[in-house]
Design a protein around this nucleic acid. Structure first.
Lengths: 342, 342
DNA sequence: TTGTATGCGTTATCAA
DNA sequence: TTGATAACGCATACAA
């Protein structure tokens, strides 16, 4: 059961395969008469160009590869969804790869996509593809558009889309302080290993410190706990915070997943939010609005990021060389819910 | 910047490309001497076979395609993760496509994977690829292994992996009744449209009815509300249930996402679980254990499903024709937490 | 034991 | 305005 090839169509039309190819690729020189005649047969026979052969020949893939750090984090899936819907609307295939918090997996995913599948463009979401690996792969396949979300690669040819996490963390912490809280803790991202190179990780730490300093609050190391951007990490970090001395009266968690874990730890310790401990997260993933109490958070511009990534990619694929500034920054926004009080 | 080809290696070794190809593909007839010599050069030059060319020639893709109904549902992502980790361990590339609750997207995804990317195997998770579309695509690419999870395709060449949702729903409902509840409601999946063809959808409805009948409880239409397997649908369904008359004293939601939505609706209505309404979900996604109160649920065998899918695929790719029975059923398990009482 | 040659389905360069 | 034809990188039947 072979599929229809250029050859079949050509034979049926009594033209050469070159002509059919020209019609399919909308070459300008084909006269309208033959164009129509051929096109009709193409439609009738249900001819579809073999993308493998096409890519083999042109070295320009038609599909877009997406590498994502953690598919179980709604922050990422939300971005992935808007991104791929947009790309699909642009008529592109999207191949997604999950790295499951692992640099090795991220590296393999990038290599598979770039070397094996020979994709036409790449989107990297999160920090799971090491910079040197990316640089090396890009050296082989030069000129291929790459867009990174929430990671600041110092590579030219790659566009970086970043959220203003520093500002968000600053606002979050200020919000807690304005509520009258004085022992404001941070459940941060991992200081090393997977997740640590996410752009927002250091930014959120910095924003937290800036707000504290501005309010003249002392810097207390016992108020800072390290998580891993996952729920279990937030849970463990909160427990450590509670056992480290007099418990904090407010917590800024560097993402919502950790905030949810922290919420569980608080509940188990018999503490209530916001009465005993005011809690604010970061990302504004859908479940944040459905926890009990609903979680205050810093909304990350997930849809904007996804759409901007698709747009940047499409723009560069259309041929234009320079894609605006190398890095673009997107605003965040405070969302106050019950977990920080009414 | 060309990459290394068979030709380059052959030239360097002073052998023909056929020999190098044989070494790379581990042909039996190559003498150990040359094999080693060639292999050394292969490694040294960093040769990697061009998968596109290889697939174009052999018509057997190396990658596995995965189509998933809803990437924002942790039930699916959990399966996807174990599946792709397993496949990666088997040395296969995995390309994932999200259909976002849309038959058209599902159809396009399957077509892209099968026709364009010419994958070597396909896994379909959920109900988003219409049966006729799949049948048609499979007719062109015959012999390609396909595994479906939670959807019962009546196609040969397709392995179906199904969970015992009927039994699970039955247990869930019985659990509620055993708690002394008499007005036991169902928040079900969508009766038509995307989601409706999921194997578990009808099964859960049936299990619920069986338990009611067995307990001699009357069948009351006002106790059944239709959701869409998403949180918002569960929320709306619960609201309808509450407005339809005297509120139910127990609810079985056909998945955890809807149960979480229902929980929010209950809270907003000033009702408490389990005191006023006992609530049980289905799936046992990670957040189910972290809601307030923690959600009782029917655990679906997500890891087993993912691993079995990888195993079935691998088995069929290794050449064995018949892959055990066409359909395999996996057990579910009741997990009692606070939302149904202590 | 090894090399030659053909073709997979395209695109692209020429010549007609 | 068209049609041969040579790659693209690889696998493989067949000749040596």
């Amino acid at each position: 059961v072979r599929s229809v090839t250029l050859h079949d169509v050509a034979q049926r039309c009594r033209v050469s395969i070159a002509t059919v190819s020209a019609v399919v690729n909308r070459a300008a020189w084909v006269p309208d008469a033959t164009r129509e005649r051929v096109q009709r047969v193409v439609d009738h026979m249900g001819y579809r160009p073999n993308q493998l052969a096409r890519t083999l020949k042109t070295r320009r893939g038609y599909a877009i590869g997406v590498v994502v750090s953690d598919l179980t984090n709604p922050f990422f899936t939300e971005i992935v969804r808007t991104l791929s819907n947009q790309l699909r609307a642009d008529g592109r295939a999207v191949f997604l790869c999950d790295s499951d918090h692992d640099y090795a997996h991220g590296a393999r995913n990038a290599a598979m996509l770039l070397d094996d599948a020979q994709i036409g463009g790449l989107v990297i979401i999160g920090d799971t593809v090491p910079e040197d690996v990316l640089a090396q792969r890009l050296r082989r396949r030069t000129g291929i558009p790459v867009v990174a979300i929430e990671r600041d690669y110092q590579l030219d040819g790659v566009n970086c889309l970043l959220a203003d996490s520093e500002g968000g963390a600053y606002e979050a912490t200020r919000h807690l302080i304005a509520l009258g809280r004085r022992r404001v803790a941070l459940v941060g991202g991992p200081v090393q290993g997977p997740g640590s190179a996410t752009f927002g990780r250091a930014q959120r730490h910095a924003g937290y410190l800036r707000a504290l300093a501005e309010a003249g609050l002392p810097h207390d190391a016992r108020l800072i706990a390290e998580g891993n951007f996952r729920s279990a990490g937030g849970y463990a970090a909160m427990q450590r915070l509670l056992h480290a001395g007099p418990h904090p009266d407010a917590v800024f968690a560097a993402n919502d997943l950790m905030a949810i874990g922290a919420l569980v730890a608080l509940r188990e310790a018999g503490l209530r939010a916001p009465d005993d401990v005011a809690l604010i997260g970061c990302d504004d993933i859908p479940i944040a609005a459905q926890t009990s109490p609903p979680l205050s958070t810093i909304a990350m511009p997930m849809r904007e990021l996804g759409e901007a990534a698709a747009a940047a990619l499409q723009e560069r694929l259309q041929g234009r060389r320079l894609p605006a500034p190398r890095c673009r920054r997107f605003a965040t926004r405070l969302v106050a819910r019950a977990s920080t009080g009414s």
